[in-house]
Structure formats: C-alpha cells, structure tokens
Amino acid sequence: MGCFCSKNTRHTPGYEEPTVLAAETPFTVSEVEALYELFKKLSSSIIDDGLIHKEELQLALFKNRNKRNLFADRIFDLFDMKCNGVIEFGEFVRSLGVFHPNAPVADKIAFAFRLYDLRHTGYIEREELKEMVLAILHESELILSDDIVEIIVDKTFNEADTKGDGRIDQEEWKEFVSKNPSLIKNMTLPYLKDITIAFPSFVVSSEVEDSEM
C-alpha cells in the first residue's frame, strides 16, 4: 500500500496522471505528456514552482510579462478553476481541452459565455459588453466615438437579447451563437490537434503507449 513515487520522476504540485486527464479530455495520453513538457516550461519561466502564474501566462502570450489585457486576464481566471491565483497542470489540460478541435461545441459555447460574463452574474450584461468593446478598441488603438460604440452594443443586444430583459442569458447566448458560429472561432486552437506532431520538441518518451490504453 502507499503511494508510488518514482525516483526519477519529480512532478509539479497539482500534477495529475496523464491517463486520468486523457480520459476526461480530447487529448491522448502521449499528447497530455507532451502538454506536461510545455506546462513545465511555462510554469518555470519566471517563478520556478511548477505552477503558472498570471505573469507567466502574459509572458507566454505576449512575450511581455507586464502586458495587461482584459481578455488574457479572463482566460487566466477561467483556467484557474480553483481560483487560487495559479494554474495547475490538471487545470491547464482540462481548460486547453475545450480549445481542442474535437471538443464538444457545447463546451466551447459555455466557456465563451463564462469568458464574457465578466462579473460572474450568470448573464452577459450590457455594460460588460460595452466594457469589452472599449477594451478591444483600446488594445487596437482605435478611436470610436461613444455614440458609435453605443450603436454597436445596442445592435448586438437587440439581436442577442431576445427576451428583452437587458441581459443575455445562457439560452440566448446558445441561440445567438447558432446564428453566428464565428463567435466561437477563437475557441478552437488547430495546434492542439496532434500536438505531438505539431510540436515535436515537447514530446518525451511515453511511459504508456496510447495503443495499450
């Protein structure tokens, strides 16, 4: 009895077995192992503690640890399922799994809804939508008058808020995405399909062959 600890394998805090993660996500065991190599690299880029801190995610995404971005912050917050300020390996794999081309569309729609539900109210509020539009304008260094921004937000709300209660609920969101599938385009990362081929540098020798699973 007792836990099994390999002398040669020292895993990061929050490590979970690839077989467990592969069973819960679209990834194969060897793909999860490849993601672990990527995770180790990302999680030691600034603080070598085997956990991805927000600055490390920013560094990976923007090559700049200090670049703030509303949407990158939202991605971090959703990946950080335990809300403890860091992304553990299991959280990393499960969250990236949603971005896999083979992940269920329903999962992508739900994830996008949570991304846009900035204040965790269970709805996408009009003010949140306007805040996000202003954020992307600021990021893009585009200047639009407040009137134009209001028109864009109003038009979208008129189309999406079919119940007319001033907020978009999950049911309305699903319906809106079904009419505008481009809205979840950024929820699919083609790189994640066959990650072991796309990123051979992350591949390590697999202890368990997928064919044996």
Binding site: K63, L70, M132, I136, A160, K185
Partner: peptide, 25 residues
C-alpha cells in the same frame, strides 16, 4: 457592417493562445 460586438471582441490578442506554443527564448 454585419459585424456584431462579439465578433469585434473576439479579435483581441488576449484570445490568441497560439503564443503558448512558441518558444520564449
């Protein structure tokens, strides 16, 4: 334009996770 606010928002670089897979050296 037929673009809605969410289409515009989705263009943010914050959603582009491909950076995770690029060498940081």
């Amino acid at each position: 334009t037929n673009l809605n606010a969410f289409d515009i928002i989705s263009l943010s670089s914050g959603f582009d996770l491909s950076g995770l897979f690029v060498e940081n050296d």
